[in-house]
Design a protein around this nucleic acid. Sequence first.
DNA 1: GATGAATGAGAATTCATTCAT
DNA 2: AATGAATGAATTCTCATTCAT
Lengths: 208, 208, 208, 208
Amino acid sequence: MTLRARTPKAKSDRERLLLSAALNVFFSKGFQAARMQDIAEEAGLSKGTVYIYFGSKEEVFQALIDTLAKPNVEHIQTLLQTAPTVTQGLRMMNGFARQLIVETDMPKFLKVLVGESQLFPEIVADYHAEVINPTLQLMERRLDEVVDSGELAVPDTHIAARQIMTPVIFSGLWESVFSKTQTLDYAALLSAHVEALLCAWAPKDTTS
Amino acid sequence: MTLRARTPKAKSDRERLLLSAALNVFFSKGFQAARMQDIAEEAGLSKGTVYIYFGSKEEVFQALIDTLAKPNVEHIQTLLQTAPTVTQGLRMMNGFARQLIVETDMPKFLKVLVGESQLFPEIVADYHAEVINPTLQLMERRLDEVVDSGELAVPDTHIAARQIMTPVIFSGLWESVFSKTQTLDYAALLSAHVEALLCAWAPKDTTS
Amino acid sequence: MTLRARTPKAKSDRERLLLSAALNVFFSKGFQAARMQDIAEEAGLSKGTVYIYFGSKEEVFQALIDTLAKPNVEHIQTLLQTAPTVTQGLRMMNGFARQLIVETDMPKFLKVLVGESQLFPEIVADYHAEVINPTLQLMERRLDEVVDSGELAVPDTHIAARQIMTPVIFSGLWESVFSKTQTLDYAALLSAHVEALLCAWAPKDTTS
Amino acid sequence: MTLRARTPKAKSDRERLLLSAALNVFFSKGFQAARMQDIAEEAGLSKGTVYIYFGSKEEVFQALIDTLAKPNVEHIQTLLQTAPTVTQGLRMMNGFARQLIVETDMPKFLKVLVGESQLFPEIVADYHAEVINPTLQLMERRLDEVVDSGELAVPDTHIAARQIMTPVIFSGLWESVFSKTQTLDYAALLSAHVEALLCAWAPKDTTS
DNA sequence: GATGAATGAGAATTCATTCAT
DNA sequence: AATGAATGAATTCTCATTCAT
């Protein structure tokens, strides 16, 4: 029998442990095929114990989304807001995106979200409302600002915000789905992309 | 009882009907959560009938991949090979990509492939080998040619080939996952992307 | 499509063909595991055709018992009744038993009857009433006669009748169950048995 | 919900309970027609519980054979080996055979083995190799010894060993198949048989 | 009469969830 | 708190039977 988690700290550690185990299992098998047993084993605990922390498999899934998704958003937002220029902000974001893809669970998370998107439309809606949309809107606003300031000449900031995310999603997905089959140089792809955008958005020379 | 399919033609029609039903169900629920019953009902047939045409749920899935994936590849390849210039080829491909996203089952297919990627690694490997890789390599070769001819100045054709696909995948995924929550102007995104690439790859003026 | 059976003769031939196929299939798989498809294939016909001749799988089974069991009984009974002495009758019956085991379907039939005995108690009761019991009673009566006539000194004719059958059943079962694993010389076993019985039943010499 | 079996002892008891239930069900319906549900109900447990102890219906069957068949063999062998004379050994074996038929599950087991013999040829081969053959060979060797010692004059010890088993199998089968229809005095049959054999094998008087 | 496609009831097996220990 | 035995709903797949051709 595993040591009991008596303090609140110990309990929240065990919760995190379970969520991390769950992500791995959901990633490997998908929500439906994932057995509570698998999650328990991945965490080194027993089946019954999972139910002490989460009421059902669906609750584990929901908690996973809530716990893992949001911290990243905040980071991106901080990055965008604190960078002196958008050009720098974009370049810094690239570095962060690379980290996100290679060093975090984001690709696994992305794969799980995509895979279960039709099964849990509320979760998708929620995720859109709390993560995707705020981030895109923040980007859009920042781009509007720099257009006004003349830093960049972005023709359509709405599309531009999405355009920025394009290789991040591509890379995340590649990492989840194809990384075992063929590697991809995410950093190169991301920076080629930013440079292309900056080229396209370069302010027109209006001096002459 | 449904009309019996006695001729080979009628049987192959019914097979197609079932595969189309299966794609919808796999898309909605994922492979695991999809019940054979669901597929049968979607096709207006009974459970047992599905087993006359396919030996198991997995066989339905495999047949789906085989049937739906490959035709699109050929189209893309033709497009690339017949366009007089790469610039035109890319612009035409965008039109095709838009069609692919809005008018075909590609987004559903993409979502299913991503969702089940860990469960069927052989199918993913197969898909990579027969669809993804040949397409990317063809693009890469075409880009190498135009670099040689001076039409474009692509710094890294390997990355460039992937870069081209970036918004296609993004759009396909958006269509699958978020289209009910928020629409996205795929044509605008795709063409903004191509224009950015063409800007970045514009041959340097070496006359002066 | 197989030739149609138009005449009554042709129909009854086809019925026999199906029953023979059924015996093989029931023997190999047991009643439950036998598929109508198997029986049809064994007979070189199609599934639906079996239903033209028999209303259900159970009806096939019933017809099998009725058709195949009874002829043999009549033969045994004739043998016993026409033999001039019981001693000769027993020896002749042995020859017949050997034939029954090696050259007929009796062992298959026995195996099927035993295997399904609990599933079809009425069939077993029927079989007992129409085949087993009459034969045993006839034997018993003949033995009573020869005891009276002084030909043999059988202590208990009821038991004796059963005792006679003992190696026949043993051999039939061995043939069904173990013949592929190890052969058994049925003729030798049967005649050793008869000789032992004749020794035990030899009339006591009461002359001195 | 039934009491939980937590200790190894309780678990092995439950396993035995299930096997005993399984024998009854397999006997009544045959392996194929037996539903796991039936076995569970016969044991007073639920369907799912059977799968905690045995991985599949086939595994239950195999375990049954392993558990129930072998103990009896040992008993017979001990009997034969410890009896001072073969004559006594045979008479004692008869007592044991009667017990086997009336007081143990042997007849049920025999019926099940016969019924499923074609479906599980490996089990039959196994059973022949581990139970039937060793027993027959032991008998044969003992008979060879007594022929040498002059105790009995057995003409063919190979056949004789089989001849001895003849009424045991007959009785076991009768018990399984016909006992509800008509009783049979097994003890009388068995001892009549032994006496007949002893008569046939009596050493020839060579004194005069 | 013959065929085999279609049906749906039924059985093995799995696994989320409960709860006695 | 932790465990894992027990349960039964749910799912895949099979096959007896029907019936359009």
